[in-house]
């Protein structure tokens, strides 16, 4: 026993000291880290749904759905956090739905590792094409100029598959989440 203490007192002491240090760092910083995560998500929601001042989190079909209200407390839209397979790895995005769930109000890709310079254009200006499209029928990806009347968007040149995967995720949301929105209105 004496030998054990002699050999290992330093490690035990260090273990305790380090654990206390870590616990200290964790308690001081954890609030700020959570705030950061929340802010990143809130910014994305603000971009896809107009006039958001308060959100309420609900779960529909395993999706995280944010019910958004404006300053007057009126329902201003829904934001759905969805992810699905991309060309390289998973894509996570937030898609905005109008209060009646009929139109796309915006789309923002928050996590992707698609090919830089090609596939990762999904996180930029390209996504604004979805704004205003109808959920009444499936959104289609077109290589040439899109026909808005037929609910189409134009694929990124050289990254048709990345464009298709994003659209698949949106269509999946349309099929699974949209019919259930009425229950939560």
């Amino acid at each position: 026993m004496k030998k054990f203490v002699e050999e290992s007192w330093l490690i035990l002491l260090l273990g305790v000291v380090f654990a206390l240090m870590l616990a200290g760092a964790q308690t001081t910083l954890s609030a700020r880290i959570r705030e950061n995560q929340q802010r990143a998500l809130n910014e994305a929601i603000g971009e896809v749904v107009p006039h958001v001042s308060r959100t309420e989190v609900i779960e529909i079909e395993g999706y995280q759905v944010f019910k958004c209200h404006d300053e007057q407390g009126q329902l201003s839209g829904w934001a759905v956090r969805a992810s699905g397979s991309g060309f390289v790895d998973k894509i996570t995005l937030v898609v905005g739905l109008s209060p009646d769930g009929e139109r796309v109000t915006g789309l923002k890709v928050i996590e992707n590792v698609e090919t830089p310079g090609l596939g990762n254009k999904i996180e930029g200006e390209w996504a604004s094409q979805y704004e205003g499209l109808s959920f009444a029928k499936a959104i289609q990806v077109e290589k040439g100029p899109p026909d808005p009347a037929r609910n189409q968007i134009q694929a990124i040149t050289g990254a048709t598959w990345s464009s298709r995967y994003v659209t698949d995720i949106v269509n999946e949301v349309a099929n699974r989440v949209r019919p259930k929105l009425a229950e939560h209105r």
Partner: peptide, 8 residues
Amino acid sequence: LVLKANMY
């Protein structure tokens, strides 16, 4: 932790 808190 510090990076996550300050340079998210």
